[in-house]
Nucleic acid binder design. Structure first.
Lengths: 204, 204
DNA sequence: AATGAGACCGACTAAGTGGTCTAATTAAGA
DNA sequence: TCTTAATTAGACCACTTAGTCGGTCTCATT
């Protein structure tokens, strides 16, 4: 019981530190030793809990990344009405935390996706699954929005979802590259214009 | 004279092979030896022409990447009228070549940007410069479009440009991850909707 | 034929890399 | 207190990395 707790604690410490370094320097550019050095742990500890670096990363994806994406981008829009407003708010909030984080390195998911795509197919799959969760949440929200009269009937929910995801991933990368300070404001502005043309038009 | 030609030929062979591997496997995940093996060349040859791996990559950026981005995304819109149509066409053409390329790994520029951002500031700078060229071309085109009556006066050209870049970078990443086949079609569809709301509205 | 510069070879180094293994330490239960 | 198992230390292994360096080859000029 007590042991199990300690085990989980050490594993979590490793995962948190691992994610931080992977996010900062990239998965391939971060060695297991780097992580261990940061925590004053030894090789033995690491390979006692995880059987390889890859499996370790996958555990991070499934424990930490999935949760962060969910709480930042999925949960806020789930079950709510008025999709455009609520989606805009969730994106704006995410951009705000990114903007105020001096060490922002872009959107976790898209960073790792672009690093592992092609090379590490297994890892890539797990990342894609998370993206899919977000996509489904967006589509569901938009569809519900049609019934509720917030979204025009003719709108292609899949297409809109893909477009939102694209735009968000792209803006996060640009923000991380330090291109202009008011990027977030501009982005939300354009998003709003786009959304407006997807709302039901008053007949005249 | 004859020597100079040979020198340039070898350098270019190295750069072309280097870009291909860097693009496929990432900069950090590709060793100098990998490139040399591909060309049946030796360490000596490489370090005779380039003084480091980093300088080598920078030369690739300035010789090859800048040119590709320019000819695919900048040149097609330069000096032309009707920004929305012409921008849409250039993006669609780029997406088409990407779609038909079985080994597509995403947008070169955004891949390298996300890999080097934070870690390799010098490389990142050169990549950002290229992005800036595209951004300026977009803004210029939009501004000219205002004078020519294709773009509504109230439109924020900077914001629109940033939004276009974001969306394109994002969709390329999604396409590279193999998410759905008709992603390109959907994307262009949404882009068109967005553009429509930026055109001057007929008075009624 | 001799020279000398440009281009290239490939063994070598030093610093990592992921991963293994044994021994030591710690903590729990009897 | 003794035993036993969970946990951690850290030396070690085979391999890869970027970069160096003395030497070799080619070939135009003398």
């Amino acid at each position: 019981m007590e042991q199990t707790l300690k085990r989980l604690a050490t594993m979590q410490r490793l995962q948190v530190a691992g994610l931080e370094l992977f996010y900062q320097n990239g998965y391939h550019n971060t060695s297991v030793d780097d992580i261990l050095k940061k925590l004053d742990l030894s090789k033995g500890a690491f390979y006692y809990h995880f059987k390889s670096k890859e499996e370790f990363f996958i555990s991070i994806i499934q424990n930490l990344i999935v949760q962060r994406v969910y709480s930042a981008l999925v949960q806020p829009i789930e079950g709510k009405e008025d999709p455009f407003t609520i989606i805009e708010e969730s994106l704006d909030a995410s951009l705000e935390t990114a903007e105020h984080n001096f060490f922002d390195n872009g959107f976790v998911l898209s960073n790792f996706l672009s690093e592992t795509q092609g090379k590490d197919p297994e890892i890539n799959t797990y990342l894609n699954d998370i993206l899919k969760i977000w996509e489904v949440a967006l589509i569901t929200s938009l569809q519900k929005g049609k019934s509720d009269g917030y979204v025009a009937r003719h709108v292609d929910s899949d297409g809109v979802a893909a477009y939102i995801i694209s735009a968000y991933m792209g803006i996060r990368l640009q923000m991380a590259c330090g291109n202009a300070k008011n990027l977030r404001y501009k982005f939300i502005q354009q998003l709003r214009i786009y959304f407006r043309s997807l709302a039901p038009q008053p007949i005249h």
